[in-house]
Simulated assay, not measured.
Amino acid sequence: MSKIKMILKDLKNEDIVNLYSEIIKELKNRKIIRTKNILGDLAEFISIETYNKTPGLPNLQAAPPGTQNIDAISKKGERYSIKATSGNLTGVFYGLNDPDSNNPELQKFEFVLIVIFNNEFELQRILEINWNQFLKFKRWHKTMRAWNLSITKELITSAKTIYSKVDIT
Rank of each mutant, 00 (worst) to 15 (best):
M1W: 09
K3P: 00
I4H: 00
I7W: 12
L8R: 02
K12R: 10
S21A: 14
E22C: 03
L27G: 11
L27S: 05
K31M: 03
I32P: 09
N37G: 00
E49C: 04
Y51L: 05
G56E: 05
L57Y: 12
N59D: 07
L60H: 03
A62I: 06
P65A: 13
G66K: 03
G66W: 12
Q68P: 01
S74M: 00
G77Q: 05
E78H: 02
E78C: 02
R79E: 13
Y80N: 03
S81H: 08
T85R: 03
T90A: 13
T90I: 10
Y94C: 01
L96T: 07
N97K: 09
S101L: 09
S101G: 09
N102I: 01
E105V: 13
F109T: 02
F111P: 00
E120H: 09
E120P: 00
F121W: 12
F121N: 15
F121R: 10
Q124C: 11
I126F: 05
L127M: 08
W131Q: 02
N132E: 15
Q133E: 15
F137I: 03
R139C: 09
K142S: 14
K142N: 14
K142L: 12
T143A: 14
M144C: 01
R145I: 02
W147Q: 07
T152Y: 08
K153W: 06
L155C: 08
S158K: 08
A159N: 07
A159Q: 07
K160W: 04
K160H: 11
I162R: 12
I162F: 11
I168V: 14
I168N: 07
